[in-house]
Amino acid sequence: MWISKLKLDLRSKAVRRDLASPYEMHRTLSRAVSQALKEGKERLLWRLEPTRGTEPPVVLVQTLTLPDWDALEKGYAEVYPPKPFQPALREGQILRFRLRANPSKRARDRGERIALKTREEKLVWLVRKFKKGGFRLREEGGQYLAAIRQDTFLEIPKAGHLIQVQAVLFEGVLVVVDPAKALETLKRGIGPGKALGLGLLSLHP
């Protein structure tokens, strides 16, 4: 896997367009791995990172193959050299994480996804996803070591109107339970909305 960091230039018309539409952002970023995507060898994940004040927008991108950021139009972003990412996960390893995701469930009557409302519901969703993906959300004193840093809704144009997709930024501490399964989770991402910049799980010591 490869991790790339892009510092976007707000003077670019394309950047402003992409920031207004996650689908457009996904389409733009996909140019860097277009051939691998066509061959079915790629799973592109990305996340718009939280920034402060007047700091330029930063996008973190994870790819399975080495991206070619020369595919972006000139002036779109300052691109930091992609870094290889091959984590040697171990059972019992404790790591910090960041995940922007869409904690949701399917409505029984309509089949569409509906947002989870309470903090407790969102943490239960996260616990379940981690368990399925080879991780465990760490607890201390009976409390999960996880915080919700952002809880917003993305407005997505669809069929002539706007739909809202919940985007929650989780940060906290997890434990590796099954290293092989955990690695696959890192590659695949967590939850729905991958093309909206959701699902990228980042780990740090």
Rank of each mutant, 00 (worst) to 15 (best):
F135K: 11
P157N: 08
K129P: 00
T185R: 12
V176R: 07
V124N: 09
D151M: 05
G133F: 01
V127Y: 10
V165G: 04
R136T: 03
E184L: 13
V127C: 05
A182H: 08
Q143W: 05
K158N: 04
G191Y: 03
D151Y: 05
V124I: 13
R149Y: 03
E171F: 00
A147Q: 14
V175E: 15
G193T: 06
P157I: 08
K194L: 11
L126E: 02
I163C: 01
K187Y: 04
V168Q: 09
R138C: 13
A180T: 12
I156V: 15
H161I: 00
K194D: 00
L162F: 12
G172M: 11
V177K: 14
V176N: 07
G142R: 11
I148S: 05
G189L: 06
A146D: 04
K132E: 15
G193M: 07
A159Y: 12
A159D: 15
G199V: 03
F135L: 13
F130G: 04
G134W: 08
K129V: 04
V173F: 04
L200Y: 07
Q166P: 10
G189W: 02
F170Y: 15
V176C: 09
G160A: 09
Q164D: 02
L162Q: 11
I156A: 08
L196E: 02
A147W: 11
R188W: 04
L169F: 10
V177P: 01
R149I: 01
A146V: 14
V177L: 13
F170H: 08
L162A: 07
A195G: 00
R136N: 08
V173S: 03
V127S: 09
E171H: 05
K158Y: 14
K181P: 01
L162H: 07
V176I: 15
K131Q: 13
A167L: 03
L198V: 08
E171N: 02
D151S: 14
T185I: 02
I163V: 15
V165K: 12
A146H: 06
A180D: 14
R138I: 01
V176L: 10
V177W: 02
E139V: 03
R136V: 06
W125Q: 09
Q150S: 13
V175G: 10
F153C: 01
A180R: 14
L169D: 13
E155Y: 10
K187Q: 12
